[in-house]
């Protein structure tokens, strides 16, 4: 319906007959936009912040806030409990190392990736919103970079917040400042890499399918099955006292990759059976290279995925 562009401003009540009409009609016609156009970098940043907020359901329906908020709570609750225990029982160290925390709560992180990676990219594919992005100044790399950075940042917030709680709690409990700060810093390095790795893998899987459900299931499957396979084979190797094999096997699932990396580079205690992380410096280096390689490969795959998307 082509409604005329007029907004009738209600004038004073009808004047006495004979008085000049005082009703005014303001024609709010089309106004041209003379202001600034901020270009690609700004658009990329806008997409980043929209996607980051979207990962926690902000700017979306109330229903879509439920799961990410529950998961955030589930991530932080154990840290709060640990802090409370440490403070009230006057322990001399935190019950769990900073670098170990994410490994213990990997299920929560996996659920977050599985629910939010498809939310971030499958939706655009499913509702065919991508053509609207690509008919604007941003390029393919801007879209991929913004989505990748947004999910990685969302994961970083999810994993770093409990570490921050632990750190603040540790300082409140008057634990050694130097030790705690070093441990906290190592924990942050570890979760930065974890966030990049999980975000990359999650997005690559999610971007394959416009169906959100498939994306969720596929991501959970990849993370759970790979971890299950790695740890059960590691268990077999442990029973045969084949410790080098345990160390190498960690390369084959996302969370054990992080574990092996931080065992070698951050001096963390490995969560592998018998705490046997990478057997030697070479293996440690391989962990780092694979870790960075997978992140880079995910970015490359995403770029490839969107090459064909274009307008249709």
């Amino acid at each position: 319906m082509t409604q005329p562009d007029v907004a009738a401003v209600p004038g004073p009540p009808p004047a006495a007959p004979g008085a000049s009409p005082t009703d005014v009609i303001h024609n709010i016609g089309y106004r041209e936009y003379e202001g600034p156009r901020l270009g690609r970098a700004y658009a990329r940043k806008s997409l980043f912040s929209q996607s980051l907020r979207g990962a926690y359901g902000l700017g979306r329906s109330a229903k879509s806030k439920v799961l990410p908020m529950i998961l955030l709570g589930a991530m932080c609750a154990p840290a709060l409990i640990m802090v409370a225990v440490t403070v009230f029982t006057h322990m001399t160290h935190l019950p769990v190392a900073y670098t170990r925390y994410a490994v213990i709560l990997q299920a929560v992180i996996t659920l977050f990736v599985a629910s939010q990676a498809p939310q971030s990219v499958s939706r655009d594919l499913r509702f065919k919103t991508t053509p609207l992005y690509f008919s604007r100044p941003i390029e393919r790399i801007d879209y991929v970079a913004a989505k990748f950075a947004a999910l990685a940042t969302a994961l970083f917030l999810l994993t770093a917040l409990p570490l921050l709680i632990l750190y603040v709690g540790a300082l409140l409990a008057k634990l050694d400042f130097g030790d705690q700060t070093a441990g906290f810093a190592k924990g942050l390095v570890s979760v930065v890499l974890l966030s990049l790795l999980f975000a990359g893998i999650g997005l690559v899987i999610a971007a394959v399918t416009p169906r959100r459900g498939f994306g969720v299931a596929a991501i959970i499957a990849v993370f759970v099955i790979s971890y299950g396979a790695v740890s059960s084979v590691q268990g077999v190797a442990a029973s045969q006292e084949n410790y080098d094999v345990i160390g190498w096997l960690g390369l084959f699932s996302p969370i054990t990759l992080i574990d092996g990396f931080q065992t070698w580079f951050l001096g963390a205690q490995s969560a592998f059976p018998e705490a046997s992380g990478p057997p030697n410096a070479g293996a440690g280096l391989v962990y780092l290279l694979i870790l960075l390689g997978v992140v880079a490969a995910c970015f490359g795959l995403l770029m490839r995925r969107y090459r064909k998307v274009g307008l249709s």
Partner: peptide
């Protein structure tokens, strides 16, 4: 990129997220 900044495009297909 410059053209896409000055041009608007309305696709033929549905492109709106429902939520």
């Amino acid at each position: 990129a410059e053209i896409r900044g000055l041009v608007g495009y309305m696709p033929e297909h549905d492109c709106l997220p429902p939520d």
